[in-house]
Simulated scan of single mutants.
Amino acid sequence: MAPFFNDLARGPDGGAAHWVTASDGVRLRMAHWPHTGAKGTMLLFNGRTEYIEKYGITARELAEIGLATATLDWRGQGLSDRALDDRLVGHVGQFSDFQKDVAAFLDYAARMNLPKPWYILGHSMGGCIALRTVLNGAPISGVLFTAPMWGIQMPGVLRTVAWTVTWTADKVALGHLLTPSTSRRPYTEAAPFLGNALTTDRDMYAYMRSQTDAQPDLGLGGPSLNWLNQALRETLALASIPSPDVPALCFLGDLESIVDPQEIKRRMGAWPKGKLIEIENAQHEVLMETPDIRRRAKSEIAAFVERTKENVDA
């Protein structure tokens, strides 16, 4: 068993966390919240800086529509192994390394006998990882996204500089350095609620901050130069690949300021079985938004699950 702070998560009863070792020896923390009589399981791919406990309330709300939930700490964040001595810098060697985490996660879901059909829900960076996973043929009935990182917002001039600086840093072995203009402090600690880029809901912002206040080891600061370079490379590579023939539902807040809304609209507009729901007055964290927005998202997810549950023999 691995450490699990369900009091901070406020998730359903019965949740448990376990240590799992990826194929390259990286130790990962994974967890699931069971649900009696579940009609399926949501495999939740969380975003950069995130960790299992952040999605306790989401797991509770998914249970209300009959789903169990499983999630994990990606390598380099939460309580999973971190690549750098400075554990507050978000770092990954290659973005493809996350697919090793995915393989271990799917194996974990099978070993835990999590109810099928399975669905993937990818948020932000997790949405980028999820798209690659679905393209690789994951055994799911459908995929959902919230503000997926299929592009990163930055001015055109800064984008050119980012490519140049991160490429150069890799060549001179400085890819471990913190990306300029970012902080080693977790975002919810560094940024006050007013003016934050994540949510318009004060209580949910306090919920996120309270978790890293109580358990600082869960926290993560800004990305390394290599993380940014790898993210730019992966989003560029994915942009040229057509969307798979898998049912998809995507939520995008109209106040999004972190990922690129235009790339999301482009892909979802061409996804054969895809639907984009744009939500008014919502920011990056649709699942951490106001109660009304979360209720709407929950209702849309329930309808999506109902119409896709027979899609594949997952």
Rank of each mutant, 00 (worst) to 15 (best):
R75A: 10
Q77E: 11
G78S: 06
R82V: 10
R82A: 01
D85M: 13
V89G: 03
V92D: 02
Q94Y: 05
F95H: 00
Q99C: 00
Q99L: 11
V102E: 04
A103R: 13
F105A: 06
F105W: 04
L106V: 02
M112P: 03
M112K: 14
N113A: 15
P115G: 12
K116E: 12
P117C: 09
Y119F: 08
Y119H: 05
Y119D: 03
I120V: 12
I120Q: 03
M125L: 13
G126H: 04
G126C: 04
I129Y: 01
V134I: 13
A138I: 09
P139A: 02
P139I: 08
I140V: 15
I140N: 07
G142W: 01
V143I: 08
L144Y: 00
F145K: 12
T146G: 09
T146L: 04
A147H: 10
M149E: 08
M149P: 01
W150V: 08
I152C: 09
Q153R: 14
L158M: 14
T160Q: 13
A162V: 06
A162Y: 05
T164L: 11
T166G: 04
T168H: 02
D170N: 14
D170R: 14
K171Y: 02
L174V: 03
H176I: 00
L177G: 03
L177D: 00
L178E: 00
R185V: 13
R185I: 07
P186Y: 09
P186T: 04
Y187G: 07
Y187Q: 10
A191W: 07
T200M: 11
D201Y: 12
D203F: 00
M204G: 10
M204L: 10
Y205Q: 06
Y207R: 06
M208G: 11
R209M: 03
S210L: 04
S210T: 10
T212Q: 06
D213R: 15
P216R: 10
